[in-house]
Amino acid sequence: MVRRILPILAGLLWASSAFAADVTLLNVSYDPTRELYADFNKAFAAAYQKETGKSVEIKQSHGGSGSQARAVIDGLQADVVTLALAYDIDAIAGKGLIPPDWQKRLPLNASPYTSTIVFLVRKGNPKGIKDWDDLIKSGVSVITPNPKTSGGARWNYLAAWGYALKKYGSADKAKQFVGDLYRNVPVLDTGARGSTVTFVERAVGDVLLAWENEAFLAQRQFGKDKFEIVSPPLSILAEPPLSVVDKVADKKGTRAVAEAYLKYWYTKEGQEIAARNSYRPRDPEIAREYQASFAKVELFTIDDVFGGWTKAQKEHFAEGGVFDQIYKN
């Protein structure tokens, strides 16, 4: 029996390694970028082959941003990480896999594409949701994932906080506002995708706080006749950053390809792919070209309002931070 099984096992193993390319990269990313990187990887592989004559295969891993960072820290052999927020890459850097100044190695905070937080509502906007204040009204049910596990959820939270801070002027009032908002949340999924499925497929909630790109994708997937995107006048500039994981790339000898891979984002082609997938491109020319697809929103940055990720993380999402206090009361 063993003799019969062994060749089958060998065959299975062989089959899985049969299509190996010259170079293989592993890109560990967060949840909503699946479609984006499916596009981008194809384009990059073609461009790279054309330039160097070498074939490159990019493997993807997706999940909650924090879980993904944890996996990389625990030894997932990622050549590059493309996560939802700088804090998660900082955590990897904190373990010595990436140098601390990683965000300065690439232009624009190492975030070649950006997004913002918008509202996805059901057709006809039955609850009349226009702005952040509408989210804390009683009877409005808001869907957003858990900021402890989801990067997108942290942007949602900070966007709401930044709005309240600007409108009501004090941190206490902002805390009150965000607390009221989370009291309207019936489900806290662990990831942004989970929340979208809850809202779209399970018909729970009146409004979904979502990445802009995620909201557009949901609309494309399920039909414009079912969901509408509401862009609040003021929101946060979400900058999902990326970095080579030096320790891994050096060990595997893939640094050159990994760097070329990330730099490709800063080309016209890369920016075009971002824009096509509803991420806001950084390149002014491409941005102008896609102007019509993105609503005009006044955007504040995390550095402006919160003094950077490390500070925001510590104040809001660490154990005993503001988010925990909200769920204590």
């Binding site: 592993l26 493997k59 891993s61 999940g63 996996a71 997932l76």
Partner: peptide, 13 residues
């Protein structure tokens, strides 16, 4: 559950 914690979720792998 157990596999989810140790898998790394690499697509196709």
């Amino acid at each position: 559950g157990a596999v989810s914690v140790v898998s790394g979720h690499i697509r196709g792998e």
